[in-house]
Write a protein that binds this DNA or RNA. Structure first.
Length: 371
RNA sequence: GGAGGGAUAGCGAAGUGGUCAAACGCGGCAGACUGUAAAUCUGUUCCUUCGGGUUCCAUAGUUCAAAUCUAUGUCCCUCCA
């Protein structure tokens, strides 16, 4: 069972420090969770994740439901055993796939009709089914089945969607058995404060173990995203874990910690890695660029990850260019390390009460005003 | 020695009289990616002062018009001796 404890609140911002206890181990928040949709963080082994310092990782209900099937994972002894990962695992509910795979006409009160992206079969996912799958998977943190909507969205639609997401949250909660798992409700409501507030307050009445902020990073600009997050965290209880779903841009991590978020997940460190991009202190670089062909310096001089300790831009560039998987692995290690390390710095700055200065310095370096 | 086939942009390869600066693939160059249908997708890739200029092995022709037709040459491939 995952237990969250709030340890410290920043007096200047909404930033907080806490711990997540799991199996006798403690992980500090705010933290970043790498994404392992198919029960693996693409290209990386659990040992590598451990070396990087990752805590919770994320897996996906929809994908594991299709393959290999949640029953198979259950028979394997649960996700931890199946994938040999002994840290905490959070499963997404399939709610994001409502946004990325389903069409509006496929969404009904009962649930969502999907076309299996692997073979075209018609599938139907309901709030109860999503919870049931996640309980079979045996993840530690379970997400309510929600509707993640795009941006911009008409207010009338958002109103209906929020009500449906609330009804779905209730239905999921009603069938959820606590055992060794905890269940989160997801705050939706688009960019409308009253809808976010209403959604948050209704979820809090249902008393979830933690709360997610959903419906961000779906095409909106950054100020809008920050607004959406602020409108959500403002109405959530302080003693419960808050998870901002799908956000991983470095500056977004900083800004949203300052708005009271404890955990984040995002595919970008691993996806960007596979596409040859790397985060550095001085901004994101595309290692494939020809200017790096004879650059025998590390990806980031200030980084001490496995990749930066042993390999050069020229070498990683070469690996990516010839499509060797080791290149994707090295950059995945680097990018996850970068975000993990960023979270560590964030925690240190919360402790020191210097989040705003940290944010300003970070922006200067990352966006080049400091070079 | 004889008989065929072929030479197209960095490479491979379409096109066989005008709609061709020339399909498509690769390679090159760049961009995008946020609860992963994503080791994917998009743009671009003769020169240009953006008006245009110069191309389809070479040269000479036919034609209003040639990468496409004719002649000669050069080089390559296959088969027969």
């Amino acid at each position: 069972m995952v237990e969250f404890e709030l340890k410290y609140k920043d007096p200047n911002t909404m930033a907080r420090l806490g711990t997540v206890k799991f199996n006798g181990k403690e992980y500090e928040t705010p933290m970043f969770m790498p994404v392992g949709t198919n029960a693996t963080v693409k290209t990386l082994s659990p040992e590598e994740l451990k070396e990087i310092g990752s805590g919770i990782i994320l897996a996906n209900t929809y994908h594991l439901w299709l393959k290999p099937g949640d029953e198979v994972v259950k028979h394997a002894g649960g996700l931890h055993k199946f994938m040999n990962y002994d840290g905490p695992i959070l499963t997404d509910s399939g709610g994001y796939q409502v946004f990325s795979l389903a069409k509006p006409k496929d969404i009904s009160e009962d649930g969502v009709k999907f076309k299996n992206h692997l073979n075209g079969d018609e599938l139907f996912l309901t709030p109860e089914k999503s919870i049931n799958i996640q309980q079979n998977l045996g993840s530690d943190i379970v997400m309510s089945f929600d509707e993640c909507i795009g941006w911009p969205a008409e207010r009338k639609y958002v109103e209906e969607s929020v009500e449906r997401t609330l009804r779905w949250a209730k239905r999921g909660k009603d069938v959820f058995r606590h055992d060794n798992q905890i269940l989160f409700g997801i705050v939706q409501g688009g960019e409308y404060e009253d809808l976010r507030r209403h959604c948050a307050e209704e979820l809090v009445k249902m008393d979830f173990d933690g709360y997610s902020v959903g419906g961000t990073s779906v095409g909106e600009d950054k100020p809008t995203m920050y607004k959406m997050v602020g409108y959500s965290t403002k109405y959530l209880p302080e003693n419960k874990l808050r998870y901002l779903m799908g956000v991983g841009d470095p500056i977004d991590l900083i800004e949203n910690v300052m708005r009271g978020i404890d955990i984040f997940d995002c595919v970008s460190p691993t996806r960007l890695a596979r596409h040859g991009h790397a985060y550095t202190k001085y901004g994101k670089i595309n290692v494939k660029n020809s200017k790096y062909i004879e650059d025998f310096t590390p990806i980031d001089e200030t980084c001490d990850c496995y990749c930066c300790r042993h390999y050069t831009k020229a070498y990683v560039r070469h690996l990516i260019n010839v499509k060797e998987t080791f290149g994707a692995r090295l950059l995945s290690i680097h990018n996850i390390y970068y975000l993990t390390n960023l979270m560590k710095q964030i925690r240190e700055n919360i402790k020191k009460g210097t989040m705003e200065e940290f944010r300003n310095e970070f922006v200067k370096d990352y966006y080049g005003e400091n070079k």
